[in-house]
């Protein structure tokens, strides 16, 4: 059983720029992932409007019946979110690490165009390693 089911990265206008599936159910339909990403983008924005106190930055953790969704928003509005098993800890660290990988291997790639889908080999390799490390840490507990 994997600790992480899937990873999404969405740009500041709600477009899906990266999606990776680690679950057992197989890859979701591409159109569905795009829809889910933009739906999440708007739900994130609405949750800020409904805050009873000022300074809300949107949903960080959504606890569903069969999964947890951890979301991290960078200062520039790019959102990273992972779908994980319920009760998985330390996902914020993993998300910050993925953000670091994104800044190092995507943003510093001279051929990468901002806000466009991510196709960077080094990012894929390092991401796979990070997820693998996280999974080992999870299983080792």
């Amino acid at each position: 059983m994997a600790a992480i089911y899937s990873l999404y990265i969405i740009n500041k206008s709600g477009g899906l720029i990266f999606y990776k599936d680690y679950g057992l159910q197989g890859r979701m339909d591409t159109n569905d992932t795009l829809r889910l990403a933009s739906l999440w983008h708007s739900m994130h924005a609405i949750s800020q409007q409904l805050s009873p106190v000022s300074g809300c930055t949107g949903i960080e953790l959504l606890e569903a019946d069969t999964f947890d969704l951890h979301c991290f928003q960078s200062l520039t509005g790019t959102k990273f979110f992972v779908v994980s098993e319920p009760g998985t800890q330390h996902m914020d660290n993993l998300l910050k690490h993925i953000y670091e990988l994104y800044t190092d291997y995507v943003l510093k790639n001279p051929f990468y165009e901002m806000e466009m889908p991510i196709r960077c080999e080094l990012f894929d390799i390092n991401l796979a390693q990070a997820i693998q490390k996280d999974r080992v840490a999870y299983l080792g507990r």
Binding site: S47, P52, S54, E63
Partner: peptide
């Protein structure tokens, strides 16, 4: 995505948390 779900049908959620509140 978006098909109407009856109460108790499909995977629902029980809470979400932002930095300023928990619902």
């Amino acid at each position: 995505l978006g098909v109407p779900q009856l109460p108790g049908q499909g995977c629902s959620f029980h809470s979400f948390r932002t930095n300023t509140y928990k619902l």
